[in-house]
Design a protein around this nucleic acid. Structure first.
Length: 581
RNA sequence: GCGCCCGUAGCUCAUCUGGAUAGAGCGCGAGACUUCUAAUCUUGAGGCAGCAGGUUCGAGUCCUGCCGGGCGCGCCA
């Protein structure tokens, strides 16, 4: 469906045609831009159903004051039979009150669109590449990766729902020193699997016992061939084998969260394809890479600092504080050197790039943005590139911080978390805070079945609706779309909130903030529960009226559509809409 | 020292990318409850949006400077 079927877009179009008419009459100058004209629900419901700032935004251009221009606009709007009143308020807002029918019709629109209600063409098929997770393949996924994984995945779904063509990508850092360490750690476990007593894991190797199966697999595959061989003979082989194992493990961990990437891009492959060399050659041609000497870092005084000539990328030309080396003094590529080439590779098949990073990488945002700007502008196709920083999650249990130690290899893994609280709780909770703010995750609180817990609250609303549908069907009732005029004012408020879903989707997608969907669902669930509670005091407000099939049918139809919107929202977040609790 | 992020009710957080009188939940005060799922409900108090300027019809939102908190700052990844 297109967004023109939703109520806000429909009235936005009506206002646009009024403005066009005023342009013809000469009240507004020809060719006026209506970019800043907004049609929104007023914050205060007593102001009406819809509000527009058109008169305030355009008054200057029309060489008049906002209230006078508003008069011209309202005069035309009032001719529309579905608009009950158009009032000028405050500095020049125009408040519209709509005929009840206009709102009731939105319920039909929800029913008609079903799982597609709220879907938008905002993205215009733009190809967006989102790179997220990209944890080093040296161990299982742990808490530090979790938030970025969920935020990235929800953002991907959100952008898809808003009409983008999304690629979900994972960058495997399988070329640096850490995977050499992994290889050596795997070799140790390999010797262990061959029956050797390895004792304490030496400092500098990965101690976690997740490498035990990898060692066993290597022993099975190679026998004792590499037990006493020099490192040079097995390092690369063991590295490749171990990385494969780690990636399998990471994929399994991600699957527990319902996350599946389209592309796993290997840094090692990038190197063997010569991409960094290509990028360097191109940058040198354009005088964006030169050989130079870095200044010693400020603030702290490194004891072993030695000035060395290195190939430097002119990131200062694009807003960075310092030019950055793309190769080390031993001639190998720096992480940045490879990452630069990697982003250029991604840019070749996308109209926009998004990276989701941990906040501890904030310091490298400028250089990579500089690199993307240099390379894509140079290639004649500059593309937008966002880096979303995701802040730390502090794990708590009943108000006490959960202790973790990297040294001993004991950290809370994603598998542990999902096992303890469930996928839906992990995902939803990670999305109930804006990503750039720090958050606490308290194991005790997130599984609490109470109003304080947003996951539960939203799912409970959906379960209540489902349960009502089951019960009413059993009693012989059915939702009826043609009795909606029987609905009362409180029910109309619920419809108005549900009707906002498409706007929320577009706003969240535009801002690239999936958490807005979570907050909206919490509001919608709250409104539903409040409405439900009316039935506790006044049985006449209950959904099922055993002596009134028409009223029951109308309310069931309403409930059905609220449930649909909750399902659509939860589906963006990757959280299940449960039928019962 | 420099860069980035954050400062909103006692606490945890929203505020729809500049709109009207800044909203929820927890906690606190006062009431209600043999239920279409009480896995609660109603209601009250509580604010100089860190501080000071600026931009404009209008600023929690944008800009500048301070203050406070967090993160980062080698050729690591």
């Amino acid at each position: 469906m297109s967004e023109s079927q939703t109520i806000y877009a429909a009235y936005g179009a009506k206002i646009a045609s009024v403005l066009a008419a005023l342009e013809q009459e000469g009240v507004l100058p020809a060719g006026t831009s209506y970019r800043n004209v907004a049609v929104e629900p007023p914050r205060d419901a007593s102001h009406g159903d819809l509000a527009t700032n058109a008169a305030m935004v355009l008054a200057k251009l029309a060489k008049t004051n906002p209230r006078e221009l508003a008069g011209h606009i309202t005069a035309k709007l009032e001719l529309d039979p579905s608009i009950k009143s158009a009032e000028i308020a405050g500095p020049g807002f125009i408040n519209l009150r709509l005929d009840r029918g206009a709102w009731l019709a939105e319920l039909g629109a929800i029913a008609g669109a079903g799982a597609d209600y709220g879907r938008s063409s905002l993205g215009e098929g733009q190809r967006v590449n989102i790179e997220y997770v990209s944890a080093n393949p040296t161990g299982p996924m742990h808490m530090g990766h979790c938030r970025g994984a969920v935020v990235g995945d929800a953002l991907a779904s959100l952008l898809e729902f808003a009409g983008h063509q999304v690629t979900r990508e994972y960058y495997i850092n399988d070329a640096g020193g850490q995977v050499d360490t992994l290889s050596r750690s795997a070799h140790l476990r390999y010797r262990e699997a061959l029956g050797e007593e390895i004792g304490e894991i030496p400092e500098g190797l990965y101690p976690g016992d997740y490498l035990v199966p990898a060692g066993q697999a290597l022993a099975k595959k190679f026998g004792d061939k590499y037990r006493d061989a020099p490192e040079s003979e097995w390092l690369a082989i063991f590295r490749a084998e171990a990385v494969d194992k780690m990636i399998d493990m990471i994929k399994a961990d991600l699957a527990l969260l319902g996350i599946h990437h389209d592309i796993f891009a290997s840094e090692a492959t990038l190197h063997s394809a010569g991409k960094p060399d290509e990028a360097e050659a191109w940058l040198r041609e354009h005088d964006l890479v030169y050989d130079g000497i870095l200044e010693a870092p400020k603030g702290k005084t490194p004891e072993d600092w030695e000035p060395v000539e290195l190939p430097l990328f002119r990131s200062t030309k694009f807003g960075d504080d310092q030019d950055r080396p793309i190769k080390k003094s031993d001639g190998s590529w720096t992480y940045f050197g490879a990452d630069l080439a990697y982003h250029f590779q991604k840019a070749e098949n996308a109209d926009a790039l998004i990276d989701i990073w941990g906040a501890d990488h904030a310091g490298t945002v400028k250089r990579i943005k500089a690199a993307v700007a240099a390379l894509t502008q140079g290639a004649g196709r500059p593309i937008p590139f966002d880096v979303k920083l995701v802040q730390m999650v502090h794990l708590m249990r009943g108000g006490e911080p959960v202790k973790m130690s990297k040294r001993s290899g004991t950290f809370v893994t994603i598998a542990d978390m999902v096992d303890e609280v469930g996928k839906d709780v992990v995902r939803f909770t990670m999305l109930t805070r804006k990503p750039e703010a720090q958050m606490e995750f308290d194991f005790a609180k997130v599984i609490e079945a109470s109003k304080d817990n947003p996951v539960f609250y939203v799912q409970y609303a959906h379960a209540r609706i489902s349960s009502t549908m089951r019960k009413s069907m059993a009693e012989g009732f059915a939702p009826q779309a043609d009795k909606l005029h029987l609905l009362g004012d409180e029910e109309l408020e619920l419809i108005k909130l549900a009707a906002q879903f498409p706007r929320i989707v577009e706003a969240a997608a535009g801002a690239r903030e999936p958490h807005r969907i979570a907050f909206y669902l919490y509001d919608l669930a709250g409104a539903f529960h409040a409405h439900w509670n009316l039935g506790n005091d006044q049985p006449a407000n209950r959904f099922i009226q055993s002596d009134d099939a028409d009223m029951t049918g109308a309310r069931l139809f309403l409930g059905q559509q609220i449930g649909q919107v909750i399902r659509n929202g939860l589906s963006i977040l990757g959280v299940e809409a449960v039928e019962e609790m």
